[in-house]
Write a protein that binds this DNA or RNA. Structure first.
Lengths: 221, 221
DNA sequence: ACACTTATATCTTGACTGAATATAAGTCTA
DNA sequence: TAGACTTATATTCAGTCAAGATATAAGTGT
């Protein structure tokens, strides 16, 4: 038993903001084990494939994401309990990815086995240890929010400061002070004004912002 | 190729403070590949073994640590590049562990293939991608220092505030303001005074502190 | 023109940090 | 044993920063 054989998989916590709540893409299983349970999208890592490449492949396949589309993708944690998969010894390298709502909404509409579920209210027991993985992803996201430009992956290219604040509030579950939030975001240097304003509002339209170039260049995906 | 066979290993970044510098335990390899290079201690994960159990097994074996001895042990990141091991496809779940200097110093004395090397000055190229793993461990440690009671794993049970400050300075590479550091540490509630004082000093001895119970109960290892 | 909603600017307050100072508690030397 | 010396500990003060509250501006609809 000098080097016993393992199966290595990646599981993906694909998150977005749906109806103002941080939600995760889940897939209903059709096969045993855990048939009919909701599970994270995932798959085996190819023998010549990087862990990151395997994760990107799943994102593209499940989310129907164009190969070059922007997304935040990051390795999360590795789950390797001997009992976690009753079929064989499986080690899963969990990743989390962030996408704008429009991308995942389209995926859910096109496939009946997919669902977007709020992370704080999954509603039913999940397959494997996937509830634990989702909780870990949520924690990681909360922790990175203040010192990493991670939230922009959940927004379209142009967004208002109100949109950005809504994203932060959905992730943390706390309401934030508006002027303080605005100041903090502008001070980070992560965003740039565009001079454009939102339209079709029944009140004063807010200015549209975009991610600053150096941040957009530096991020994952 | 529905589930190709992988070898799964754990590699350990065993760190301590030696001569005032954050240092890592390395082992000189006797076999190819990378014969004569320094490498992180590691090993294959047993087929019925948890990832954490495998990591603890390596710590106990390499550091000669008694099974119950306190140590900070935490999963770091998983490295799975197809080219990282020329022999076979290997996925390594890297962990980092923190130990008091006395424990690792004993291990180094007892075995000629072990060495304690400062993390910021490794001195020679390492085997595999181990230099990258060490850099990641150092970054993680720096990031957790302020909001997690991680530094105490590097100290004996009783320590002075000066000792604690030295540990923080060795990890961050920055000199800290003494009264501010003292205030900050006392405010965390992580430590308790003992009423005892250090001995054998050529000047006024400082008070000895210990980790507060709730912190000691909650930590890893 | 006016009411309404949100955006933006300004002001005040409290918390925290760093530096400086004063005092206490030991050791060492004469 | 007295006094110099070194470090530990306590206290104070000023500067910085961020959050909250408030006031004003800007745009839309009636």
């Amino acid at each position: 038993m000098s080097h016993p054989p393992f199966a290595v998989t990646v599981d993906l916590v694909l998150m977005t903001i749906a109806d103002g709540r941080l939600s995760v893409l889940l897939q209903r299983r059709s096969e045993e084990p855990f048939a009919d349970r909701l599970a994270l999208p995932g798959g085996f890592v190819g023998i010549e494939e990087t862990l990151g490449d395997a994760a990107r492949r799943i994102v593209i396949g499940k989310a129907g994401l164009a190969a070059g589309a922007s997304a935040w993708l990051e390795q999360l944690y590795t789950f390797g309990d001997p009992q976690r998969d009753p079929r064989m010894r499986t080690v899963s390298v969990a990743h989390f990815a962030l996408l704008p709502h429009a991308v995942l909404a389209r995926a859910v509409l096109s496939r009946s086995d997919l669902a977007l579920v709020p992370v704080t209210d999954l509603g039913e027991p999940l397959a494997f240890d996937h509830a634990t993985i989702i909780a870990a992803a949520h924690e990681r996201l909360k922790g990175k929010l203040d010192y990493s430009p991670v939230a922009f992956a959940l927004l379209p290219d142009l967004f208002t400061l109100r949109d950005l604040q809504s994203v932060h509030e959905a992730i943390t579950g706390k309401t934030l002070n508006k002027p303080a939030f605005r100041r903090r975001m502008l001070d980070t240097g992560w965003i740039e004004r565009t001079g454009q304003r939102e339209s079709d509002t029944p009140f004063r339209p807010a200015e549209l912002y975009k991610i600053s170039v150096q941040v957009a260049d530096g991020r994952a995906g």
